[in-house]
Design a protein around this nucleic acid. Structure first.
Lengths: 244, 244
DNA sequence: TCAATGCAAGTGTGATCACAAATCAAATAA
DNA sequence: TTATTTGATTTGTGATCACACTTGCATTGA
């Protein structure tokens, strides 16, 4: 396998995309990330290395390294007993997360507003259509698809901000708020108010006009919704639990 | 070892501090962190698991997990060859890092400005004294102590912001800018302009007055210095290299 | 009946081994 | 001399094992 035979002078090699050797650990990590952001794990649920290894059909080795990585991103929590769980939801933590997301994602979208080219704007505009489409056959209540599409929309924008530092931080924030969001989305569906498309449309409009301040404002409104909704719900629940 | 016999009713237990079982992996991780923030590793230097394991006198297992964690925080970089190195310094990355630090650390200090109690302010005020003290016998050029003291000063403030979400992000940012900073500090010393104490004094003043905007501004001035200094240096070097 | 004790299963951590891929150096061919 | 190849060494990855600690449950004692 010589390096010289695979360089740019070879007309064959130019058409071949690098295959990219993904390790088992990477796959486990991605899978756990996906599950976390999608809210497949319950808050306060404890995870065991061997349990996950069995579920993912691998040995314990890739799992323990993936868990360690998720713990450092605060997506999981290491208890003093040395067991690991998905962090529980508290009101303080929710406010903390929302504040950080407003700060950082707001900055990212403001940067992106001045840097997105027309092709990128067309891409996110196209996503609005997908959203309406899914909404049409809404009875299916496909929460997974909803979460995935929402994530794709936001990160298509964030990627355009051009900051290799901010984007991983935003990913970490989504990882941390994943469990909360899922709860909120279910509550949303029950309450019947799923107007995400409206908020996204406002964002696209601002981006097309290169209106950084407007985009930031629209984004804040969008990401705040599940948090304030869930906050109200939790407060109502605790009040009800208190009186009961 | 019963839980019941170790609770608050036992007069003996009240005097005993929990022993806290730190794992080898944690020690390796902390040690590598310290080295990274202190800039003990050169930018672009590649690290090997077995090499570090030998240096740290442990097996490869704790090292590889610590490296994985540092890679997810972007403190280290995983090359496609699967070797890991400390990220190289580029102008784009420096600007990116500085912008993120201004955004997040600025927010943290603004929050802290309204929450620090007089005892905490006295603590950071006391640190100014230590700084002057060190400066007096400056001929020793104790860069390590300088870095440590600077870190202690800043994080004493950040901890007071009360955000469990922002603080780990700031730690990650320090980890990422560690290699840059060290280079800058050496350059500073050569240039003979070490007026960090002045900037810190301004910060303390603003914190004592609960002046959030002033504190943010003073902080930005403080953390920007090494970056602009290093930027000028790098630009001068590349220009010189170009003409040579 | 209830709490304390002791045993067994489960779990995380670290060490070691096997294997594949990458790297480096010497040797060979042009 | 220079470029290529071949082989040895190094390195990351995953699997397995041993050990210590925790947890849960059944047994025993008052």
């Amino acid at each position: 396998m010589q390096k010289a035979t695979a360089d740019k002078s070879d007309p064959i090699a130019a058409q071949l995309a690098p295959v990219g050797r993904e390790t088992v650990q990477d796959r486990v990590y991605s899978e756990l990330r996906r599950a976390l952001i999608g809210g497949l794990f319950e808050p306060s649920q404890v995870l065991t290395i061997r349990g996950l290894a069995d579920a993912l059909m691998t040995s314990t080795m890739p799992v323990r390294e993936a868990l360690g990585r998720l713990i450092t991103e605060k997506a999981l929590e290491a208890l003093p007993n040395r067991s690991v769980r998905v962090p529980p939801i508290t009101l303080e933590r929710m406010d903390d997360l929302l504040r950080a997301r407003i700060l950082i994602e707001g900055e990212a979208i403001a940067l992106a507003a001045t840097r997105m080219n027309s092709r990128q704007i067309a891409t996110i505009e196209g996503m609005l259509g997908e959203w309406d489409e899914m909404r049409a056959l809404k009875h299916k209540k496909d929460v997974d698809r909803e979460v995935t599409l929402n994530q794709a929309f936001h990160f298509e924008i964030y990627r355009a901000c051009g900051s290799a530092v901010l984007i991983p931080m935003i990913e970490s924030l989504w990882l941390q708020s994943g469990p909360c969001i899922r709860v909120a989305i279910y509550a949303f569906s029950d309450a019947g108010e799923v107007d995400t498309a409206h908020y996204h449309r406002t964002i696209v409009k601002a981006m097309a006009a290169q209106d950084a301040a407007g985009a930031r404002e629209a984004l804040i409104a969008d990401i705040s919704r599940p948090f304030v909704f869930l906050r109200n719900k939790l407060e109502a629940d605790s009040k009800k639990g208190l009186s009961a």
